[in-house]
Design a protein around this nucleic acid. Structure first.
Lengths: 153, 153
DNA sequence: CATGAAATTAGAAAATC
DNA sequence: GATTTTCTAATTTCATG
Protein backbone atom coordinates (compact mmCIF):
# COMPACT_ATOMS: atom_id res chain seq x y z
CA UNK A 1 0.00 0.00 0.00
CA UNK A 2 1.15 3.50 -0.82
CA UNK A 3 2.52 5.49 2.06
CA UNK A 4 1.07 8.93 2.59
CA UNK A 5 3.14 11.28 4.73
CA UNK A 6 2.28 14.54 6.41
CA UNK A 7 3.13 16.62 3.38
CA UNK A 8 0.77 14.51 1.34
CA UNK A 9 -1.98 14.88 3.91
CA UNK A 10 -1.66 18.63 3.81
CA UNK A 11 -1.73 18.61 0.03
CA UNK A 12 -4.77 16.37 -0.03
CA UNK A 13 -6.57 18.51 2.50
CA UNK A 14 -5.99 21.56 0.33
CA UNK A 15 -7.02 20.04 -2.98
CA UNK A 16 -10.19 18.63 -1.45
CA UNK A 17 -11.21 22.19 -0.77
CA UNK A 18 -9.97 23.56 -4.06
CA UNK A 19 -8.60 21.32 -6.75
CA UNK A 20 -7.53 24.39 -8.74
CA UNK A 21 -5.10 25.77 -6.23
CA UNK A 22 -1.80 26.44 -8.02
CA UNK A 23 1.02 24.14 -7.07
CA UNK A 24 3.08 27.17 -6.12
CA UNK A 25 0.51 28.20 -3.50
CA UNK A 26 0.28 24.63 -2.37
CA UNK A 27 4.02 24.72 -1.94
CA UNK A 28 3.82 27.77 0.30
CA UNK A 29 1.17 26.21 2.50
CA UNK A 30 3.05 22.96 2.86
CA UNK A 31 6.57 24.41 2.77
CA UNK A 32 7.74 22.57 -0.27
CA UNK A 33 8.91 23.66 -3.67
CA UNK A 34 6.43 23.60 -6.52
CA UNK A 35 8.39 20.79 -8.09
CA UNK A 36 8.06 18.66 -4.99
CA UNK A 37 4.34 19.35 -4.88
CA UNK A 38 4.07 18.47 -8.54
CA UNK A 39 5.81 15.15 -8.06
CA UNK A 40 3.71 14.31 -5.05
CA UNK A 41 0.48 15.10 -6.81
CA UNK A 42 1.54 12.91 -9.70
CA UNK A 43 2.35 10.01 -7.41
CA UNK A 44 -0.84 10.39 -5.43
CA UNK A 45 -2.81 10.29 -8.64
CA UNK A 46 -0.88 7.34 -10.06
CA UNK A 47 -1.33 5.38 -6.86
CA UNK A 48 -5.03 6.00 -6.80
CA UNK A 49 -5.00 8.01 -3.59
CA UNK A 50 -6.44 10.81 -5.67
CA UNK A 51 -9.21 9.03 -7.51
CA UNK A 52 -10.53 11.86 -9.60
CA UNK A 53 -10.63 15.58 -10.08
CA UNK A 54 -14.20 16.70 -10.41
CA UNK A 55 -16.50 19.68 -10.38
CA UNK A 56 -19.31 19.82 -7.87
CA UNK A 57 -22.35 21.30 -9.52
CA UNK A 58 -25.33 23.12 -8.15
CA UNK A 59 -28.13 20.60 -8.45
CA UNK A 60 -30.86 23.17 -8.09
CA UNK A 61 -29.72 25.44 -10.89
CA UNK A 62 -29.46 22.44 -13.18
CA UNK A 63 -32.95 21.20 -12.55
CA UNK A 64 -32.08 18.38 -10.18
CA UNK A 65 -33.75 19.91 -7.20
CA UNK A 66 -34.92 16.67 -5.65
CA UNK A 67 -32.70 14.46 -3.58
CA UNK A 68 -34.17 11.19 -2.48
CA UNK A 69 -32.80 8.48 -0.25
CA UNK A 70 -34.20 5.01 -0.72
CA UNK A 71 -33.72 2.00 1.51
CA UNK A 72 -34.17 -1.35 -0.14
CA UNK A 73 -34.62 -4.88 1.05
CA UNK A 74 -33.99 -7.68 -1.40
CA UNK A 75 -35.66 -11.03 -1.73
CA UNK A 76 -32.57 -13.10 -2.32
CA UNK A 77 -29.11 -12.44 -0.99
CA UNK A 78 -27.54 -14.92 -3.34
CA UNK A 79 -24.45 -13.47 -4.83
CA UNK A 80 -25.66 -13.55 -8.41
CA UNK A 81 -28.97 -11.96 -7.64
CA UNK A 82 -27.29 -9.38 -5.48
CA UNK A 83 -24.76 -8.46 -8.14
CA UNK A 84 -27.44 -8.13 -10.77
CA UNK A 85 -29.47 -5.89 -8.49
CA UNK A 86 -26.46 -3.79 -7.67
CA UNK A 87 -25.66 -3.38 -11.34
CA UNK A 88 -29.18 -2.28 -12.11
CA UNK A 89 -28.92 0.40 -9.47
CA UNK A 90 -25.46 1.54 -10.51
CA UNK A 91 -26.42 1.79 -14.13
CA UNK A 92 -29.20 4.23 -13.44
CA UNK A 93 -27.73 7.68 -14.09
CA UNK A 94 -30.05 9.24 -11.54
CA UNK A 95 -28.57 7.09 -8.82
CA UNK A 96 -25.75 9.20 -7.46
CA UNK A 97 -24.77 6.84 -4.73
CA UNK A 98 -25.39 3.18 -4.06
CA UNK A 99 -24.37 1.45 -0.85
CA UNK A 100 -24.70 -2.21 -0.06
CA UNK A 101 -25.26 -2.36 3.68
CA UNK A 102 -25.81 -4.56 6.69
CA UNK A 103 -28.62 -3.97 9.08
CA UNK A 104 -32.29 -3.42 8.57
CA UNK A 105 -31.84 -2.88 4.83
CA UNK A 106 -29.71 -4.25 2.05
CA UNK A 107 -29.17 -1.21 -0.14
CA UNK A 108 -29.24 2.51 0.30
CA UNK A 109 -29.57 4.62 -2.82
CA UNK A 110 -29.30 8.34 -3.18
CA UNK A 111 -31.07 9.82 -6.17
CA UNK A 112 -30.72 13.23 -7.76
CA UNK A 113 -33.85 13.72 -9.82
CA UNK A 114 -35.86 16.45 -11.45
CA UNK A 115 -39.28 15.69 -10.04
CA UNK A 116 -41.39 13.31 -8.04
CA UNK A 117 -42.87 12.05 -11.26
CA UNK A 118 -39.46 11.09 -12.46
CA UNK A 119 -38.72 9.32 -9.21
CA UNK A 120 -41.97 7.43 -9.50
CA UNK A 121 -40.99 6.26 -12.94
CA UNK A 122 -37.65 5.15 -11.58
CA UNK A 123 -39.24 3.18 -8.77
CA UNK A 124 -41.25 1.28 -11.35
CA UNK A 125 -38.21 0.58 -13.43
CA UNK A 126 -35.82 -0.24 -10.61
CA UNK A 127 -38.01 -1.72 -7.89
CA UNK A 128 -41.44 -2.87 -8.99
CA UNK A 129 -40.23 -4.51 -12.17
CA UNK A 130 -37.38 -6.28 -10.42
CA UNK A 131 -38.39 -9.48 -8.71
CA UNK A 132 -35.49 -9.31 -6.30
CA UNK A 133 -36.65 -6.10 -4.66
CA UNK A 134 -38.83 -7.14 -1.73
CA UNK A 135 -39.70 -3.75 -0.32
CA UNK A 136 -38.33 -0.25 -0.25
CA UNK A 137 -38.80 2.91 1.75
CA UNK A 138 -38.43 6.44 0.43
CA UNK A 139 -37.01 9.38 2.32
CA UNK A 140 -37.29 12.77 0.64
CA UNK A 141 -34.56 15.26 1.45
CA UNK A 142 -36.01 18.56 2.54
CA UNK A 143 -32.62 20.07 2.87
CA UNK A 144 -29.12 18.94 2.24
CA UNK A 145 -27.38 20.29 5.28
CA UNK A 146 -24.06 18.95 4.16
CA UNK A 147 -23.17 17.28 0.93
CA UNK A 148 -19.72 16.29 -0.08
CA UNK A 149 -17.26 13.48 -0.06
CA UNK A 150 -14.49 15.17 1.84
CA UNK A 151 -12.48 13.24 4.32
CA UNK A 152 -11.56 14.53 7.77
CA UNK A 153 -7.83 14.29 7.12
CA UNK B 1 -31.74 32.42 -12.41
CA UNK B 2 -28.77 31.79 -14.61
CA UNK B 3 -29.48 30.27 -17.97
CA UNK B 4 -27.47 27.20 -18.91
CA UNK B 5 -27.42 26.38 -22.61
CA UNK B 6 -26.37 23.27 -24.46
CA UNK B 7 -22.75 24.30 -24.71
CA UNK B 8 -22.70 24.74 -20.97
CA UNK B 9 -24.28 21.37 -20.40
CA UNK B 10 -21.64 19.69 -22.49
CA UNK B 11 -18.91 21.53 -20.65
CA UNK B 12 -20.38 20.62 -17.27
CA UNK B 13 -20.73 16.99 -18.26
CA UNK B 14 -17.08 16.90 -19.22
CA UNK B 15 -15.69 18.61 -16.14
CA UNK B 16 -17.74 16.39 -13.86
CA UNK B 17 -15.78 13.48 -15.26
CA UNK B 18 -12.46 15.28 -15.30
CA UNK B 19 -12.05 18.73 -13.88
CA UNK B 20 -8.53 18.90 -15.29
CA UNK B 21 -9.42 18.57 -18.92
CA UNK B 22 -7.69 21.40 -20.84
CA UNK B 23 -9.98 24.09 -22.13
CA UNK B 24 -8.61 23.48 -25.59
CA UNK B 25 -9.79 19.86 -25.50
CA UNK B 26 -13.07 21.01 -24.05
CA UNK B 27 -13.36 23.35 -26.99
CA UNK B 28 -12.87 20.54 -29.47
CA UNK B 29 -15.53 18.41 -27.83
CA UNK B 30 -18.03 21.25 -27.68
CA UNK B 31 -17.00 23.00 -30.89
CA UNK B 32 -16.06 26.29 -29.37
CA UNK B 33 -12.80 28.19 -29.12
CA UNK B 34 -10.77 27.89 -25.93
CA UNK B 35 -11.55 31.50 -25.21
CA UNK B 36 -15.27 30.83 -25.35
CA UNK B 37 -14.90 27.82 -23.09
CA UNK B 38 -12.84 29.89 -20.70
CA UNK B 39 -15.47 32.60 -20.50
CA UNK B 40 -18.24 30.10 -19.97
CA UNK B 41 -16.39 28.30 -17.21
CA UNK B 42 -15.80 31.60 -15.50
CA UNK B 43 -19.46 32.54 -15.66
CA UNK B 44 -20.62 29.14 -14.50
CA UNK B 45 -18.34 29.44 -11.51
CA UNK B 46 -19.38 33.00 -10.74
CA UNK B 47 -23.02 32.11 -10.92
CA UNK B 48 -22.58 29.17 -8.62
CA UNK B 49 -23.54 26.55 -11.17
CA UNK B 50 -20.09 25.14 -10.57
CA UNK B 51 -19.94 25.06 -6.81
CA UNK B 52 -16.46 23.74 -6.34
CA UNK B 53 -13.55 22.00 -7.94
CA UNK B 54 -12.51 19.13 -5.77
CA UNK B 55 -10.44 16.00 -5.63
CA UNK B 56 -12.10 12.71 -4.83
CA UNK B 57 -9.84 10.70 -2.59
CA UNK B 58 -9.52 7.01 -1.99
CA UNK B 59 -10.99 6.55 1.46
CA UNK B 60 -9.43 3.15 1.98
CA UNK B 61 -5.86 4.20 1.31
CA UNK B 62 -6.28 7.08 3.71
CA UNK B 63 -7.53 4.99 6.57
CA UNK B 64 -11.19 5.85 6.27
CA UNK B 65 -12.27 2.42 5.29
CA UNK B 66 -15.60 2.47 7.07
CA UNK B 67 -18.66 4.10 5.62
CA UNK B 68 -21.69 4.20 7.84
CA UNK B 69 -25.18 5.43 7.19
CA UNK B 70 -27.21 6.49 10.18
CA UNK B 71 -30.91 7.25 10.32
CA UNK B 72 -32.01 9.52 13.11
CA UNK B 73 -35.30 10.44 14.67
CA UNK B 74 -35.45 13.57 16.78
CA UNK B 75 -37.49 14.32 19.86
CA UNK B 76 -38.56 17.82 18.94
CA UNK B 77 -39.13 19.18 15.48
CA UNK B 78 -39.17 22.74 16.69
CA UNK B 79 -37.15 24.89 14.39
CA UNK B 80 -34.56 25.90 16.97
CA UNK B 81 -33.97 22.42 18.22
CA UNK B 82 -33.79 21.15 14.68
CA UNK B 83 -31.28 23.76 13.63
CA UNK B 84 -29.10 23.07 16.61
CA UNK B 85 -29.17 19.36 15.91
CA UNK B 86 -28.38 19.92 12.27
CA UNK B 87 -25.46 22.15 13.19
CA UNK B 88 -24.07 19.52 15.53
CA UNK B 89 -24.14 16.98 12.76
CA UNK B 90 -22.67 19.29 10.17
CA UNK B 91 -19.84 20.34 12.41
CA UNK B 92 -18.64 16.82 12.87
CA UNK B 93 -15.82 16.38 10.36
CA UNK B 94 -16.53 12.67 10.07
CA UNK B 95 -20.02 13.41 8.81
CA UNK B 96 -19.58 13.57 5.07
CA UNK B 97 -23.22 14.08 4.28
CA UNK B 98 -26.21 15.21 6.27
CA UNK B 99 -29.74 15.17 4.92
CA UNK B 100 -32.83 16.44 6.65
CA UNK B 101 -35.62 14.24 5.39
CA UNK B 102 -39.32 13.48 5.52
CA UNK B 103 -40.60 10.01 6.15
CA UNK B 104 -39.77 7.47 8.79
CA UNK B 105 -36.71 9.38 9.91
CA UNK B 106 -35.66 12.98 10.35
CA UNK B 107 -32.00 12.90 9.43
CA UNK B 108 -29.76 10.70 7.37
CA UNK B 109 -26.03 10.96 8.00
CA UNK B 110 -23.22 9.40 6.08
CA UNK B 111 -20.01 8.94 8.01
CA UNK B 112 -16.51 8.22 6.76
CA UNK B 113 -14.62 6.86 9.75
CA UNK B 114 -11.53 4.88 10.57
CA UNK B 115 -13.02 2.22 12.78
CA UNK B 116 -16.06 0.98 14.58
CA UNK B 117 -14.58 2.26 17.79
CA UNK B 118 -14.43 5.69 16.38
CA UNK B 119 -18.02 5.47 15.22
CA UNK B 120 -19.06 4.35 18.68
CA UNK B 121 -17.38 7.41 20.16
CA UNK B 122 -19.18 9.58 17.67
CA UNK B 123 -22.55 8.08 18.51
CA UNK B 124 -21.95 8.98 22.15
CA UNK B 125 -20.98 12.48 21.25
CA UNK B 126 -23.63 13.13 18.63
CA UNK B 127 -26.57 11.01 19.70
CA UNK B 128 -26.51 9.80 23.30
CA UNK B 129 -25.36 13.10 24.71
CA UNK B 130 -27.89 15.08 22.73
CA UNK B 131 -31.33 15.18 24.30
CA UNK B 132 -32.99 15.88 20.98
CA UNK B 133 -31.96 12.58 19.43
CA UNK B 134 -34.75 10.13 20.17
CA UNK B 135 -33.42 7.07 18.40
CA UNK B 136 -31.09 6.15 15.61
CA UNK B 137 -30.34 3.19 13.43
CA UNK B 138 -26.99 2.28 11.98
CA UNK B 139 -26.35 0.77 8.58
CA UNK B 140 -22.81 -0.32 7.83
CA UNK B 141 -21.72 -0.13 4.21
CA UNK B 142 -20.23 -3.42 3.11
CA UNK B 143 -19.48 -2.01 -0.29
CA UNK B 144 -19.85 1.29 -1.95
CA UNK B 145 -21.15 0.26 -5.31
CA UNK B 146 -21.33 3.81 -6.53
CA UNK B 147 -20.16 6.93 -4.82
CA UNK B 148 -20.18 10.33 -6.38
CA UNK B 149 -22.15 13.47 -6.72
CA UNK B 150 -22.43 13.54 -10.48
CA UNK B 151 -25.59 14.69 -12.13
CA UNK B 152 -27.20 12.90 -15.05
CA UNK B 153 -26.93 15.93 -17.32
C1' DC C 1 -24.74 39.99 -26.30
C1' DA C 2 -21.84 36.52 -28.17
C1' DT C 3 -17.76 34.76 -30.89
C1' DG C 4 -12.66 33.44 -32.57
C1' DA C 5 -7.64 34.59 -33.35
C1' DA C 6 -3.69 36.16 -31.51
C1' DA C 7 -0.77 37.80 -27.83
C1' DT C 8 0.25 37.60 -23.06
C1' DT C 9 0.58 35.73 -18.57
C1' DA C 10 0.50 31.98 -15.54
C1' DG C 11 0.98 27.37 -14.45
C1' DA C 12 2.62 22.55 -14.84
C1' DA C 13 6.12 19.40 -15.96
C1' DA C 14 10.78 18.07 -16.74
C1' DA C 15 15.62 18.32 -16.42
C1' DT C 16 19.42 19.32 -13.56
C1' DC C 17 21.95 19.61 -9.35
C1' DG D 1 14.71 17.79 -1.51
C1' DA D 2 15.40 22.84 -4.46
C1' DT D 3 16.39 25.68 -8.84
C1' DT D 4 15.98 26.54 -13.26
C1' DT D 5 14.32 25.69 -17.83
C1' DT D 6 10.88 24.20 -21.03
C1' DC D 7 6.49 23.41 -22.36
C1' DT D 8 1.58 23.58 -21.89
C1' DA D 9 -2.52 25.82 -20.54
C1' DA D 10 -5.25 29.77 -19.01
C1' DT D 11 -6.35 34.39 -19.61
C1' DT D 12 -6.72 38.85 -21.77
C1' DT D 13 -7.04 41.82 -25.69
C1' DC D 14 -9.00 43.03 -29.71
C1' DA D 15 -11.62 42.88 -33.85
C1' DT D 16 -15.99 40.95 -35.76
C1' DG D 17 -20.96 39.44 -36.34
Amino acid sequence: MFEVDNFDFQILRAIQKDARIPQSELGEVVNLSTAAVNRRLKKLKENGVIKQYTALLNQESLGFGLTIITNIEVESEQIHELDATRRDFENCPYVQQCYYVTGEWDFVLIFAVKSMDQYNDLTRELFFQKPNVKRFKTLVAMSKAKVGLELAL
